[in-house]
Amino acid sequence: MTDMTDPTNDELERLLSAYAETHLSPDPRAAEAIRARLIREAGFAFDAARDEARHRALRRVEQRARWRRSGVRYGLLAATFGLSVAFTGVALASEAGDPLYGVRVWWETAMLPAGGDARASAEISRMDARLVELAAAVESGNGNGAAAAAAAYQQIVEEALHGAVGDDRRQMQLEDALSRHVEVLTALLSKVPDSARGSIEHAIVESGKAIEKVGGPSADPNVKPAPDKPARSPKPDSSARPTGPGNSQGNPGG
C-alpha cells in the first residue's frame, strides 16, 4: 500500500473530487427548498415525538400502578390458595372427633362422583370407612370420636338412601351394606363409651328404617325389575337389632 502516497494518486484524487464538484453537486435553490420542507417536517416529527413520549410516560406510570395492584391481588390470591391447601391438608388428615372432622366429611361428599353406580359404590365405601373410624374410636375409648363417626355415618346413609330411590339395583346394594353395618354397630354397642351410646343407637335405628325403605317395592312405579334380578336378601331380623334403652320400646317387633 506504499503506492497510496504516489503523487499521481493525489492528482487523480483531485480530479475525482473536482469531477464530483462540477458534475454532481446540488442546485443551491433546490437544496434550499428541500431544507425548508425538512425543517418543517422535523418540527412536526419532534412535536409528535414529544407527545408520544408524554403518553408513553403516562402509560408507564399507569402500568406500574396496575402491576402494583395486580401484585397485591396475586399475593393475596397466592396466600389464600396456600392457606386453603394447608387447611385442606390438615382437614383431610383429621380423625373422628377432631375439630376439622366435619370438613373432611364435607370434602369427601364434594369429591363424590356425580351419580350412577360409581356414586353408589363410593357412598357405601364411605359408610364402611366411617364404621372403621367408629370402631377405632370405641377401641381407644374416644367417646367424642365415636359419636362424630356415628353421626357422619348416619348422614351418609341418608344421602345414599336419597340417591338410591327408584333404582332397584342400588337399593339392593344399599340394603346389603346396611345389613352388614347394623351387625357391626350392634356389636360395637356393647363396648361403646356412654357418651357415644346414643349416637350409635340412633344410627342403628335409622339404618333399620333405611333397610325397610330400600327393601320394599321400588318407589318409582315406572321402574321395573330386571328379568335377571337376583333375589333380595331378607330384611334383617329385628331380633338382631340392638335393644338399647331408646330403641327397645320403640321396636314392636322386638
Binding site: 464530483a20 454532481l24 446540488p26 437544496a31 431544507r35
Partner: peptide, 13 residues
C-alpha cells in the same frame, strides 16, 4: 442537513 446535503446529493447523483 447543511453539513451532509452536498455529500449525499453527490453520492446519489
Amino acid at each position: 442537513f447543511d453539513a451532509y446535503h452536498g455529500p449525499i446529493h453527490r453520492y446519489v447523483a
